[in-house]
Design a protein around this nucleic acid. Sequence first.
DNA 1: GCCTCCATGATCAAGATCGACATTGCCAAC
DNA 2: GTTGGCAATGTCGATCTTGATCATGGAGGC
Lengths: 91, 91
Amino acid sequence: MIKIDIANALMQTLPISKATALQVVDLLTDRMKKALLDGDRIEIRGFGVFEPRPRKRGMGRNIKTGQSVEIPKGKSIRFKPGKDLRDIDVE
Amino acid sequence: MIKIDIANALMQTLPISKATALQVVDLLTDRMKKALLDGDRIEIRGFGVFEPRPRKRGMGRNIKTGQSVEIPKGKSIRFKPGKDLRDIDVE
DNA sequence: GCCTCCATGATCAAGATCGACATTGCCAAC
DNA sequence: GTTGGCAATGTCGATCTTGATCATGGAGGC
């Protein structure tokens, strides 16, 4: 599923044009990105929580050189699936 | 940032009512949940990728009992931040 | 707008997983 | 069709996850 699929799903259900649907998706992701970059956490009940988290881990590894490279700074965006998504049980 | 904030952001930018904005957010999350539960991965360029991933890890621990509890089945929804979100650099 | 409901957060421990770097190919986006 | 973001590879260590309970707050109802 890519952006187009989401836009299609929106326009098929809501009374909005495809162009608007695309704008919606784009704006949504943009707003979320800004919020996350701003350090704000996004909590959508029943879906999940996006939480900016400081990266503290020490070092990674460079394939070609094989040397341990220190992971400089960093923040990771952690997504914690909500109840509905944690309910997954596919054997 | 919660669902209301996102809805407000949408209605402030796009020519849609707040009610519609809320429907959009709700529908969006619903569609994404369904896709993820269906095992489909969602890839939004520049934002991130939601990917259902089989959980293979062995066991956890229960505080109150103190016993090692085996992690039964499981699928986790992994969100991989896109370029824009990986670019975070907070000193 | 306020109240109520129920999901979410934190905790402890142990073990598996993720992440970063660099390069190439593929596919999402325009 | 073109562009360039994203996946995969490999190593090593820190982080995350699971589980139950209490408290907080997101979210829906009146």
